[in-house]
Each structure stands twice: as structure tokens, then as C-alpha cells.
């Protein structure tokens, strides 16, 4: 088996496990994510604890930034950003998936 084929196979296995977790989270926690989305849109930022990490979300004009703390909330470093669109309606619609994505990343292992 070539290195590329082996790598593609590993990618497929990794993606199956990761997206299964993402699907599970978004199905189980949809109402919580909707509440978080309303709170984030109202306040502009939101800090949550996900497993052993503190996660800070901040909304901007067209997207949402997610910062993660590796030292119990003392300092945060930028982890991810996603485009949500300009309107409140689009942000409300897309934020739950972003929350689920970040939680899946943390639970799956941030380095994976």
C-alpha cells in the first residue's frame, strides 16, 4: 500500500470517528446550543467549560471567534473562526453547529 493510500485510509477512519461524535453532540444538545446562541448574540461573548478546557466565544460582524485556554482560564489563545453571515437570522441558524464543532474538537483531542 502506498503512503498516500494509507494516509487516505487513516483520514477516512479519523473523519468517520470525528463526524460521528459531531453528529451525536448536535443531536443530543440542540436545545442547549440554541440557548447558547441566543445568549452569545445578546451579550456578544460567552465563556463555557468544555471538559478540561475553558472556551470563549466572541461574535463579530460576519462570524464567530473561538478562543481556548490551556491554563484554567488565565489566558486564551485564538483557536478558530467561522463565517456565519451578516444577519442575526443566519448567525442563529449556524451557531449551534459551530458550538458542536468546537465541543467535538475538544472531546476528540485538539491536536487531532
Amino acid at each position: 500500500m502506498s503512503q498516500d493510500s494509507a494516509e487516505n485510509l487513516n483520514d477516512a477512519v479519523r473523519d468517520d470517528a470525528y463526524f460521528a461524535l459531531f453528529g451525536e453532540l448536535i443531536s443530543q444538545n440542540s436545545s442547549r446550543y440554541e440557548e447558547q446562541a441566543s445568549s452569545l448574540l445578546k451579550e456578544g461573548s460567552l465563556v463555557l467549560r468544555v471538559d478540561n478546557h475553558w472556551v470563549k466565544y466572541a461574535i463579530d460582524r460576519s462570524g464567530c471567534t473561538c478562543d481556548i485556554s490551556y491554563d484554567s482560564g488565565k489566558t486564551f489563545s485564538k483557536y478558530s473562526w467561522t463565517r456565519l453571515g451578516w444577519t442575526r437570522k443566519n448567525k442563529e441558524k449556524r451557531l449551534p453547529a459551530f458550538f458542536a464543532q468546537t465541543e467535538a474538537d475538544v472531546k476528540f483531542g485538539l491536536e487531532n
Binding site: 479519523r14 481556548i68 489563545s77 483557536y79 473562526w81 467561522t82 463565517r83 474538537d105 485538539l110 487531532n112
Partner: peptide, 27 residues
Amino acid sequence: EIAERTIDFGGVIPANKRVAHKGTWVR
């Protein structure tokens, strides 16, 4: 830009080790 993700690999990564970044995606 539609998505950005930064993986912070704390600690030492040995020479010649392949480091993969596979988690940037958008629905």
C-alpha cells in the same frame, strides 16, 4: 475567509515527525 483553525502543539515535536492538521471544515 470562511473558516480558520489553529492547532497549538505545546511541547516539543521531534525532528522529521509529520504533523497533521485535519480539522478545518465548514458545513
